[in-house]
């Protein structure tokens, strides 16, 4: 055991966020990282996994380098989020909750990003993209694809 002192549990979720995105393009918590956190906080592993799996922003299985969180709240829905979803779905070839075969994008549907005045919204990783249109989303995704080639 590398660390034996107990860290106060109120920092647990922050630690999970930090661990999850420790490296660029990584958006999940590995077994080794989960073990480390469990030891640091003196939490049984099963409980730690139980906590991680409760919160939708954390993942214990490999996800894409980029997480696209598409908002489908009522405010976004009445401003076209469903069309956006179907467009992104076709463009990336994946359903919500899935990762593209190249491991680049994971698509998630979320219930509200709290920017309803600029609906429809999506988040790419930590950045909010508001007032998005099908054209804008194409430009954005294409630019991201290119940037990584």
């Amino acid at each position: 055991m590398e660390t034996t002192f107990m860290t106060s549990r109120d920092t647990l979720l922050s630690a999970l966020h930090e661990t999850q995105s420790r490296e660029k393009g990584k958006s999940w918590i590995t077994d080794g990282e989960a073990l480390q956190i469990a030891r640091r906080y003196h939490i049984p592993l099963a409980e730690l996994d139980g906590i991680v799996s409760f919160y939708k922003m954390f993942a214990r299985e490999k996800r894409g380098s980029h997480i696209i969180r598409l908002c489908d709240s009522l405010s976004c829905r009445v401003r076209g989020s469903l069309d956006l979803y179907h467009h992104v779905r076709r463009k990336l070839g994946i359903q919500a909750g899935m990762t593209t075969p190249d491991g680049r994008f994971t698509l998630e549907i979320v219930n509200c990003l709290g920017a309803c005045d600029k609906a429809p919204n999506l988040m790419i990783d930590d950045s909010l993209v508001s007032g998005i249109t099908i054209g804008a989303i194409d430009t954005l995704l294409d630019a991201m694809q290119e940037a990584e080639l």
Binding site: R9, D10, L13, S14, L16, H17, I51, F54, Y55, F58
Partner: peptide, 27 residues
């Protein structure tokens, strides 16, 4: 004052669930 960040759960907006989450538990 310390800032603590949630993990994606609506129910945690309820004050008792929020406290559970703040204590590093399931919300």
């Amino acid at each position: 004052v310390a800032v603590r960040v949630g993990g994606g759960s609506y129910v945690v907006g309820d004050e008792t669930a929020l406290l559970n989450s703040l204590m590093g538990n399931r919300g």
